[in-house]
Design a protein around this nucleic acid. Structure first.
Length: 635
RNA sequence: GCGCGGAUGGCGGAAUGGUAGACGCGCGGGACUUAGGAUCCCGUGGGGCGACCCGUCCGAGUUCGAGUCUCGGUCCGCGCACCA
């Protein structure tokens, strides 16, 4: 039993068994009601742009028109279609009803034989494949009346139209829609050009152009035509502007044992009645066999003493709902529960929630870009509208971490290419392994795992070990060392904020190498060693804690509020190297005080012997001098 | 097909439009040592004796200056994929 989005190309995404369709009564959450809000609020979130784009695509808003066509010869008297291109209305040459349309019968010509033929045809339909087959379709025999021209158009049924999207029926404009074009070709239906551009002999033209063969609209740019046609339809009460979303409602029913039972009691008299709040949560009964039944009902249905209850309204005999909910529903609010796990009378405490949420920074895999992250946003909004939480959005910032690949493929147990970190942890220790993983590359990038280089991190920790134990000199104030210390704090600080853990570790390493050399000479300062341990603590928590203790500190290296601060003024370098280039090629360097004015840089640059030689007595044509950066001399 | 990323030494990767290759691995040389697959130090993009020349996927462009910006292409990865 799967949700639509758990189906990949007609198969289960996990076990790859072929999916078959069965009709069941199930529970859905009306996420579609929040489609517009969920879309709009994306602009206010500091999330990875790619994640936001995926959500936008998933919500799939489109603007167009609904158009009413009268029908003749069948039970239904009219049908509404949805189109994003009302400007091509005059090019509609037939209608197509989705093969899975719930009321397909009503569109079929009122004729016993025809109806039988359509039913037979529908029952023989091959299962949906990846590639749409435009040769599959059938004329229903009824006619549709074009709302503006009065022309009679044939009505077809075909699986390439989706019964569940929009109105489940379309007006086919083969001149300007690829799929309609392919279908018209396969069934020799007329193709009419109503927008200039392209050559309809070879393909449909879906671009913009001037309207043609469109009565009074001829000559109008198609972009403007859309609203003009809608206007005309509205005047005649034949249509209106319309917005559609691809987003579907969320099917939360699962016919399994494991999961939170959906808290509903079915009563013959009162219908579905919610379980009273004081009886929540509904707990799972203890059972012997919790395997799926394969019959389309949950194993819970077999537990009579659990299923049979009294209706909370009328007290008569009633039955519990036996479906449990999708685990995505759990992950849609776990962050609300986290701060309040010590409360057992409520799901979450309002005060705690207000203090902790929304989540400032959420890091997860991009595989959750749409499902988990959209469901969680929806649940949060719904709870917000119910007045249960203050925030409308659960995660202020979101960044997707990269995925570590092994031998070119995502690690998975089924593929057998998993890597067990224990082996490395045994050999090098957890700190080294952790450090190495963070050093591999940018956190958000991911990439192929190779263990080459892990030794470097082992060496780094060796250095830190020596430095921490040997750094004892606390001589007179050393301005250079103090500036260096502030510089490294700033670098690590900035890098962590941007999730650039790899460069943060590089900075720590550079610091450690220099301190190691000073320590060997007996000149390493303990304040530097302390700073080094603090900076290292988030990356190698165990060894830094151990060394922190060994160097005589009573508190923890991880103690709250003890992250080192830097002075921006001290962190700035006081001497800088300015490159001197002639025609863009490097010819020399200047060592100057930071902030040396550009005219002074220019003066010094021109005195460099190599520059003078290249100038050969001539005046430079132009000199660009940028403070602290570069002097470029154009000859 | 549509959308989004990416391409930099032998390798992982650095680089507010300003000295390309930080840092690490590997490699070369050296130190210490009975020994070193331990540790430390120095060197390490390619070519040339050299002054220099060439180098960030390819091709144009903008700029005093482009890995970085613009346009066009190639290849790779990811997501969506009959949504009318």
């Amino acid at each position: 039993m799967l949700a639509d989005e758990q189906v990949e190309q007609g198969r289960c995404e996990r076990c790859h068994s072929v999916v078959e369709t069965r009709y069941l009564r199930q529970w859905w959450l009306k996420i579609t009601r929040y489609a517009q809000q969920l879309l709009d609020a994306l602009d206010t979130l500091d999330w990875s742009e790619s994640t936001k784009i995926m959500q936008r695509n998933w919500i799939g808003r489109s603007e167009g028109a609904t158009i009413l066509f009268d029908l003749e010869g069948c039970r239904r008297k009219d049908v509404t279609v949805y189109t994003t291109r009302p400007d091509t209305l005059y090019g509609a040459t037939f209608l197509v009803i989705g093969a899975d349309h719930h009321e397909l019968d009503d569109f079929v010509l009122d004729d016993r034989e025809k109806r039988g033929a359509v039913n037979a045809w529908r029952n023989r339909l091959p299962p949906a494949t990846e590639e749409p087959d435009f040769s599959v379709g059938m004329d229903l025999g009824s006619r549709a009346v074009h709302p503006l021209t009065g022309e009679r158009l044939p009505v077809w049924v075909a699986p390439y139209v989706l019964g569940g999207y929009g109105t489940g029926a379309i007006m086919a404009v083969p001149g300007h829609d690829e799929r309609d074009w392919a279908f018209a070709r396969a069934h020799t239906l007329p193709i009419v050009q109503v927008i200039s551009g392209g050559d309809l002999k070879g393909a449909a033209y879906a671009g913009e152009g001037l309207m043609m063969n469109s009565a009074g609209f001829d000559g109008l740019p198609s972009e403007d035509g859309r609203s003009r046609v809608i206007e005309k339809l509205r005047e005649r009460r034949r249509g209106d502007a319309s917005v559609q979303y691809k987003l579907r409602d969320w099917l939360i029913s699962r016919q399994r044992y494991w999961g939170p039972p959906i808290p509903i009691i079915h009563c013959a008299k009162d219908g579905p009645v919610p379980v009273p709040e004081e009886d929540l949560p509904v707990l799972l009964p203890e059972v012997e066999d919790f395997r799926p039944t394969g019959t389309g009902t949950s194993p819970l249905a077999t537990v009579d003493e659990w299923v049979n209850v009294r209706c909370p309204k009328c007290g008569e005999a009633a039955r519990r709902e036996t479906d449990v909910s999708d685990t995505f529903l759990d992950s849609s609010w776990y962050f609300l529960r986290y701060p309040s796990t010590d409360f057992d009378d409520v799901a979450f405490d309002p005060e705690r929630t207000a203090g902790w949420l929304p989540v400032d920074m959420y890091i997860g895999g991009n595989e959750h870009a749409v499902r988990h992250l959209l469901y969680a946003r929806f649940v949060m909004r719904a709870l917000h509208d119910l007045g249960l939480v203050d925030a409308a959005e659960p995660f202020t910032r979101f960044r997707a971490h990269g995925m570590i690949i092994l031998e070119g493929a995502k690690m998975s147990k089924s593929r057998g290419n998993v890597l067990n970190p224990d082996e490395y942890i045994e050999r090098y220790g957890a700190d080294t392994f952790r450090l190495f993983m963070m050093y591999l590359g940018p956190y958000t990038a991911g990439g192929d795992f190779r263990d080459a280089g892990i030794k470097g991190m082992s060496r780094l920790l060796n250095r830190v070990w020596r430095v921490a134990q040997l750094a004892t000199s606390d001589g007179p104030h050393d301005d250079r060392k103090e500036r260096r210390r502030h510089r490294h704090i700033k670098e690590v600080d900035d890098d962590i904020a941007q999730l650039h853990y790899n460069t943060a570790i590089a900075s720590i390493n550079t610091f450690a190498v220099e301190l190691d050399q000073e320590a060997a000479a007996g000149a390493a300062r303990s304040i530097d060693a302390d700073t080094l341990l603090k900076l290292l603590a988030p990356f190698a928590p165990f060894i830094s804690e151990e060394l922190w203790e060994r160097t005589g500190h009573d508190d923890s290296v991880h103690a709250r509020g003890t992250w080192p601060a830097y002075d921006a003024e001290l962190a700035r370098p006081q001497r800088v190297t300015v490159a001197v280039t002639v025609n863009g090629k490097v010819r020399g360097q200047l060592e100057v005080d930071a902030g040396t004015a550009s005219d002074e840089l220019e003066r010094q640059a021109l005195t460099l012997p190599r520059v003078a030689a290249l100038l050969d007595g001539n005046q430079p044509r132009k000199v660009v001098a940028v403070v602290d950066r570069i002097v470029n001399i154009v000859v």
